[in-house]
C-alpha cells in the first residue's frame, strides 16, 4: 500500500460541502480542515493513486490539489511490520 497526503484548496465557503464529499472516499482521512485548505491522507494501492488524485480534483468545491507527500512502499504489508 502507498500513503499520500494532499493539500486541497477550496472555493471560499464550500469547505464543509467538500469535506462531506471527501469523507466518502475510501481510504481517505481528513487530517485538517481550514477555511481555504484541507489536508487529506490517503492509503491506497500505489497504482490507484493517480485516479484518486484526479478524483479529488472533481470533488465539488475543490479548486486545486497538490500532492504533498508520497510514500510508495508496496512491501509495507508483505513485511508484516504494520
Amino acid at each position: 500500500m502507498a500513503i499520500a497526503s494532499f493539500v486541497l484548496q477550496m472555493e471560499p465557503g464550500r469547505g464543509a460541502e467538500a469535506a462531506a464529499a471527501l469523507s466518502r472516499v475510501p481510504g481517505l482521512t481528513l487530517e485538517f480542515s481550514g477555511e481555504q485548505n484541507l489536508v487529506a491522507v490517503v492509503e491506497r494501492a500505489s497504482a490507484e493513486l493517480p485516479q484518486v488524485e484526479s478524483g479529488l480534483k472533481e470533488v465539488p468545491g475543490v479548486l486545486c490539489v497538490i500532492t504533498a507527500y508520497l510514500n510508495i512502499e508496496d512491501e509495507l504489508e508483505a513485511a508484516g511490520s504494520c
Binding site: K57, E58, V62, C64, I66
Partner: peptide
Amino acid sequence: CETCHMFHTSSLHHGAYGKSESKEKF
C-alpha cells in the same frame, strides 16, 4: 505559483495525467 500550476505534473501533451483539469472544470 505551484498552488495552481503544479511544476511537476504540468504536462506537455494534451490529456496527460495531472494536466490542470480542475481549472477547466470549475
